[in-house]
Simulated assay, not measured.
Amino acid sequence: MLNNYKPYAYMRVVVPLDENRGWDSKISDEFGHAPYFALVDGDSLTIVEGPKVITGRGPRWAELYTKLKPDVVITKEIGKPAYAAFRQKGVTVYYADAKTLREAVEKWKRGELREFPEELAHEPHHEH
């Protein structure tokens, strides 16, 4: 019975997206400013608009964490505060070595994504 165990089936994965094209959506080069976010829960996919998730009522990572409750984040970039906060809350952050959502999630399920290197987390972008 354990041979069919799929740990990813019980994890909520969040990925920032540039577009809403389902599994073929392009992964965003931005995290907190992404136009869309994918929530992969087991094998189900929900795509939400960034402004509906991040409304500006607190740190971007905190709103995303509270509303989408990820266990895993797959991203191409992330700020140091968000990276540290996610890690502190037990969220694993992976580097999105992929072009599309489908490719990133399939690589993650196969264990082919590496954890996001802490030294690549950048200083936060401040809007003036």
Rank of each mutant, 00 (worst) to 15 (best):
G32Y: 06
D43I: 14
G50F: 15
D29H: 10
L64R: 00
H33P: 03
A84D: 15
L68Y: 08
F31A: 07
V53F: 13
K76A: 08
K80L: 04
V14I: 09
A85D: 12
P117R: 12
Q88Y: 10
H126N: 08
N20T: 11
E77T: 15
G90Y: 15
E77P: 09
P7S: 00
L2C: 02
I47S: 02
T66I: 14
R102Q: 10
K69C: 12
D41F: 03
D71P: 00
A121R: 09
G50K: 11
I27C: 05
E30D: 15
Q88F: 13
P124R: 07
E118W: 06
E127M: 03
H122C: 11
V93D: 05
K99I: 00
V13G: 07
W108Y: 12
Y94W: 03
K6W: 05
L68W: 12
G22T: 03
M1L: 06
R102H: 13
L45W: 10
P81K: 00
E112K: 04
V53E: 06
V14M: 07
R114S: 02
Y95M: 02
N20G: 05
K107T: 00
Y94S: 09
P16W: 11
Y95F: 13
P81H: 04
L39D: 01
E77K: 14
E112A: 04
V73I: 15
T66R: 13
E118Q: 07
T46F: 08
M1W: 04
R110T: 01
A82V: 10
K67P: 02
Y65T: 08
H126T: 02
D24Q: 14
E119W: 12
Y95E: 06
H33L: 01
A62F: 13
V91N: 11
Y94F: 15
Y5K: 02
R110I: 00
V48F: 10
L17F: 06
R114N: 11
H122A: 12
R87T: 13
I47H: 05
G90H: 08
A85W: 04
G56K: 05
P16K: 10
N4V: 00
Q88N: 13
R110E: 14
E115R: 11
W61L: 03
R57M: 08
P70D: 10
A62R: 11
F37A: 03
L113R: 03
V40G: 04
V93K: 05
R12Y: 11
Y83R: 02
S28A: 12
Y8M: 01
D97W: 06
G42K: 14
G90M: 10
V105M: 07
P7Q: 03
A82T: 09
S44R: 09
F116W: 08
E103N: 06
H122Y: 08
R12S: 11
S28V: 06
P35H: 03
H125A: 08
K109L: 02
T100F: 10
